[in-house]
Design a protein around this nucleic acid. Sequence first.
DNA 1: AGAGTAGCCTGTAAGC
DNA 2: TGCTTACAGGCTACTC
Length: 307
Amino acid sequence: MPELPEVETVRRDLEARIIGRRITSCQVSPDAPRLVQLIKPAEFCRQLAGRAVAGIRRRGKYLIIDLDDGRAWVLHRRMSGNVLYRVPYDPPDDYTRAVFVLDDGHELRWTDLRKFGTMWLVEDATMVMATLGPEPLEAEFTADVLRARAGKRSAPIKSVILDQRVLAGMGNLYTDEALHYAKIHPLRPANTLKPDDWQRLHAGIIEALTMGIAARGSSLGSTLRDHINVDGAPGENQNAVRAYGREAQPCLECGAAMHRIKVGGRSSTFCPKCQPAPRGGASSANSRKPARKPMLHAQPATKRPTR
DNA sequence: AGAGTAGCCTGTAAGC
DNA sequence: TGCTTACAGGCTACTC
C-alpha cells in the first residue's frame, strides 16, 4: 500500500518526466464519483486543462503537483491508487479512473481498484493537509520531537505512529518495520516508552523509510491491487521486509517465529522475543485473539485457533 | 480530549 | 463445486 516511500518514488519518477509539460485534456470516469473532491469532475477537468506543471512535491502521503497559475493539484493514493506514465497506444490499464493527456504525447493514468483515492485542485495545498505532523526524513524530526508529540498518549505505540497528526507518512508496513528495528512491542502504551526507546524508534522509522525509498517501494500483493511505480513495475522493498507480513516465519534477528495480532484494527507482525509484550496484562500474542492467517505470503499450515 | 471503531471499496482466500 | 464471509488498509466521521 502506498506509504511515504511509495509516494516519494512516484514523485521522483514524475519529476524527471512531467516538469514543464502542459495538461491538454482530462477525463474522469463516472464510476469514480469520490475521486475529485470539492468540485465536480467536469469543472476540475476544465480548470486543469491548459495548465503546465511547475513542480512536484510530497507531504506525508500526499503528492502535490504545483501548476503554472500558482494553484496545486493534490493527489492521495490511499489504498490502491497508482499514477502511470503511458502513451495512448499502450495497452489499457485495469481500473483506470482518470486520464490526463500531456502536450508531449504522454498521458498520466490514475488507476485505483478500491476507489479510495482522492484528488483536489486548490489555491494552497496546505488547506487539505493542515493537520499533518512533521516529515520524518527532515532534519527537524528528532527523537525529542517524536517523544514530545507522542509520549503523552496512552494508546498503543503502533496506533500513535500511524496517526498522521503525530508524524506524516507512516503506514502499516513501515510502522511494523520500525517497531521491529526498535525492538518495541506494538501494544506498548506510548506513554511507557523510555528515552532509550524513543531513540531506537526514531532511528527505526528513518531506517525503514530510507530503505523503502532506496528499493523503490514495497509491493507485497498482486500488482493489480498494490503499489506500482509510474512505469507499472513493482518496487523491490518487499524482499527486504523484516516484519510486515512475515507471520510464522523466523525473526531475522533471533530466529523465533513471528507473531501477528490486531492493533487498532491493523494487522501487526512482530517478534515475541525481540519485542517483548508490555507488562501488566496486555498480552503476549498468544493470550489475544489471533488474527487470521496471512494471505500475502505462503506459510506452513497452522491449526485453526480454538475459541 | 483521547481512544476506539464503522464505513468507504473490491478481489481473493478461507471455511463450510 | 459453489456460496458466504473475513480480510487487506488510509483516512474520516462518529461514539464513548
